[in-house]
Write a protein that binds this DNA or RNA. Structure first.
Length: 277
DNA sequence: CTAGCTTCCTGATAGC
DNA sequence: TGCTATCAGGAAGCTA
């Protein structure tokens, strides 16, 4: 489940491999992964183009072509984007293959097929991917306790659920929201309206700390990426909260508890992340 | 505008 | 052993 740090890793690993490469052909094996325009047009328009650079916004990855066209990719739950050497074995659930010079390929593998690709022309405004509705980046200086309070302070929803709202802060998913709330010492079910200024400040600081940490620990070489994490996002090291139900809290030793919030499982320490009375 | 629910999709795991 | 049920979850789409 790639979240912002993992998508950043994908970008950093693939950017040097893809910059300057021309796309010789594109084969889409699973048409539904092409959200726009359609699989046939996607392949046709992309063939012959040269990749200039890669960028990331929230959990979206963009391949910028020299023509100004761009391919926007969202990996959703299980999407894997790999640059493979010649004769690399074909994996199950490979939905897109793009041929590069020298037998190299770009491959998109996605067990659950939730991931999506969009191809936008140079002069085409982005109104189809949802990127235009994204909130600020977690590491943006604009993300402060005041900002969060202004955008969320009046809401009655649990803070955990609002951390997943991509239109407020872009890039946080279920793993990092658990880690962020643990770091901040905030009960995940806390209503936004019940947080005070200190809580919002701790939350803003924790978002920056945890997302930065996530990017840091995910630094990989191209070989490491291909061998493991490019295909296995669940292999997150040193998590303090996510998935640790019943285990001892890293801070106080209490048994971690699980709660379903907004349909998402949430692990927290009942002592360190105490619910307000 | 918000809230709440369903849908997409497969594989891992639990229970019988 | 083999079957069924449940869960994992990002985001869009739907109704109210």
């Amino acid at each position: 489940m790639p979240e912002l740090p993992e998508v950043e890793t994908v970008k950093r690993v693939l950017a040097p491999q893809l910059a300057g490469q021309s796309i010789l052909s594109v084969t889409v094996c699973q048409p539904q992964i092409i959200a726009y325009p359609d699989a046939a047009l996607f392949s046709e328009l992309l063939t012959g183009q040269t990749i200039q650079s890669l960028s990331r916004r929230g959990k979206f990855l963009t391949l910028h072509m020299e023509s100004g066209d761009r391919v926007v990719i969202h990996l959703r739950m299980t999407g894997q984007l790999l640059v493979t050497p010649p004769d690399y074995p074909l994996e199950k659930h490979t939905h897109l293959v793009a041929e590069l010079p020298g037998g190299m390929q770009i491959r998109y593998i996605d067990v659950r097929r939730f991931g999506r690709f969009w191809l936008l022309k140079a002069d085409e405004a982005d109104t189809v991917t949802g990127q235009d509705k994204l909130g600020i980046e977690p590491l943006d200086d604009a993300l402060t306790g005041e900002f969060l309070c202004a955008r969320l302070g009046y809401r009655s929803k649990p803070i955990k659920e609002m951390l997943h709202d991509q239109t407020i802060v872009a890039g946080i998913g279920n793993i990092y929201s658990d880690e962020i709330l643990f770091e901040a010492g905030i009960y995940p079910g806390e209503k936004c309206a019940d947080l005070d200024a200190d809580g919002w400040n701790r939350l803003a600081a924790s978002i920056k700390k945890i997302i930065s940490w996530g990017i840091e620990v995910n630094q990989l070489t191209a070989d490491e990426y291909l061998a493991g994490k490019g295909k296995e996002y669940r292999n997150m090291p040193d998590l303090n909260a996510y998935g640790r139900e019943g285990q001892a809290c890293a801070r106080c030793g209490s048994a971690m508890e699980k709660l379903i919030i907004g349909g998402r499982s949430s692990c927290y320490c009942p002592k360190c992340q105490r619910k307000k009375p």
